[in-house]
């Protein structure tokens, strides 16, 4: 049985690198990624699971890092926008289609879109919309984001 109390040292697999952090069990993953690992790509937005700016991938599935305890992430593979490396098809597509304005939501959108393209490359419009609805763009770049995602999916 895993048991964590008080300050404890955990190891997390983030972007294919094992990293140690000292956390409280009540620390959320978002804060640990940003404050201990300096991975500031996941952005604090609503911190309530609504906006999606803090989206990371956990074992390949999108998760809002504000709603994951850091201790829960032990033993799972975490991927942040830094781990995408800058030249994935979806990142190239976002540049090509100008799929951002202020950019604050971009890393969260990239993670959702990357996961969609990896897991469901044949996704249809309905599926795409369902995944994208998890994230909010306050600048309303939705049309450009949609075009960028479409360009990396196979059958739309």
């Amino acid at each position: 049985m895993k048991y964590y109390e008080g300050d404890c040292v955990i190891e997390l697999d983030v972007n294919n690198e094992i990293r140690k952090a000292t956390v409280r069990p009540s620390d959320v993953l978002l804060d640990v990624l940003r404050e201990q690992f300096g991975l500031t790509g996941a952005k604090p937005g609503c911190k309530n699971g609504d906006c999606g700016t803090c989206t990371i991938l956990m074992d390949g599935l999108p998760a809002k890092a504000c709603l994951v305890l850091a201790v829960e992430a032990v033993g799972h593979k975490i991927l942040t926008v830094e781990g995408l490396g800058g030249h994935t098809p979806i990142q190239e597509a976002f540049v090509q289609y100008n799929a951002f304005q202020c950019g604050y939501c971009t890393s969260g959108f990239l993670m959702v879109c990357h996961a969609l393209a990896e897991r469901k490359p044949n996704a249809d419009e309905y599926e795409m919309e369902k995944w994208l609805q998890s994230n909010i763009c306050r600048c309303t770049s939705y049309q450009e984001i949609r075009e960028a995602v479409k360009s990396v999916l196979k059958h739309i």
Partner: peptide, 11 residues
């Protein structure tokens, strides 16, 4: 941030 501390266990 969650202000209070709690114990976490995973049986």
């Amino acid at each position: 941030m969650i202000a209070n501390d709690f114990v976490y266990c995973k049986p």
